[in-house]
């Protein structure tokens, strides 16, 4: 299909060629300057033995598995709420979307203060309401740091998911509802049998974005915790970036990239399968 050609060309230049280059690099040792040395599988070997790599991998999975579904459920609920004919729904939509475009650095600084153990607003409010009697060291503890960062990222992304779901909701033809109504389907049934299935492509999109987020929220992680304490909030991409640019171990970073790519491709194909193939495509005219 000729209309599909220009896009793969752009991707070829900026994604696919670099990916092969990466694959090649993962068998080498390089630090931007020295000659490329072929080291075989050494980088991969190192990767398997590296506890920090496994920790970052685990965090990435948690980040995705806990963050995306929560954000999507919230987004669907919000989208249903603001899709109604109520006063000021445009205002609500805008407010919910508002955090998404904000500069991550600014968000990071504010949330860092919100989470602060001694002077942060969240602890202040929780304690004023009598919910807790001892302040929680959100970002300053191994147990709380990752959930805290995930909550911040959900806060930022949920409005965006809502917009996507909203777009999906509005493309659902009205006749389907009318027909269902004539058949006497209850609102709940209409939601389960019409809205939800037809939202599948949008939900699929949100999942994909969620996957991307679980590694591009790297600037948020950087600003809020820099991967700490320990490596408890380190995600694969921040670890890759660290290895490439801070430790200057490009080959090693490339090996992790290859692993990450394969893993995410696997996840995506599962998500794709569950959403009925073809990137969640549905054809309800068939």
């Amino acid at each position: 299909m000729e209309y599909d050609l220009p896009v793969p060309c752009v991707f070829a230049v900026y994604r696919i060629i670099p990916m092969f280059w990466n694959l090649l690099l993962s068998f080498k040792k390089w630090n931007f300057l020295s000659a490329n040395i072929w080291v075989g599988l050494k980088n991969y070997n190192m990767m398997i033995k590296d506890p920090v790599f496994w920790e970052s991998f685990r965090n990435t999975v948690i980040y995705f598995a806990a963050g995306s579904p929560t954000a999507i459920i919230f987004a669907i609920l919000m989208a249903l709420l603001v899709n109604q004919n109520i006063r000021g729904r445009n205002t609500y939509r805008s407010i919910i979307f508002l955090p998404y475009p904000l500069t991550t650095v600014a968000i990071g600084i504010i949330w860092k203060w919100l989470y602060n153990e001694k002077v942060g607003l969240i602890n202040y409010v929780l304690r004023s309401l009598g919910i807790i009697d001892k302040n929680i060291p959100f970002l300053d503890s191994f147990n709380w740091a990752l959930p805290s960062v995930i909550i911040t990222s959900i806060w930022q992304v949920v409005g965006f998911f809502m917009i996507i779901i909203l777009t999906g909701l509005q493309s659902i033809p009205e006749q389907l509802y009318e027909a269902a109504e004539l058949d006497g389907a209850s609102p709940r049934k209409r939601f389960y049998y019409i809205t939800l299935p037809l939202l599948k492509p949008s939900i699929f999109l949100c999942f994909i974005i969620g996957i991307i987020n679980s590694f591009t929220m790297f600037d948020l992680v950087y600003v809020m915790t820099n991967g700490g304490p320990g490596h408890s909030t380190e995600i694969l991409v921040s670890y890759i970036y660290k290895n490439a640019f801070t430790f200057s171990r490009i080959g090693y970073a490339a090996a992790i990239t290859v692993f990450l790519f394969l893993f995410l491709l696997f996840i995506t194909s599962i998500v794709n399968k569950f959403s009925g193939e073809e990137a969640g495509g549905v054809n309800y005219y068939e």
Binding site: V52, D140, S141, F142, G228, P229, G230, H231
Partner: peptide, 10 residues
């Protein structure tokens, strides 16, 4: 990394 683990009681 290790220092923080000790400091936060891990």
């Amino acid at each position: 990394n290790e220092l923080q683990k000790a400091l936060f009681g891990e």
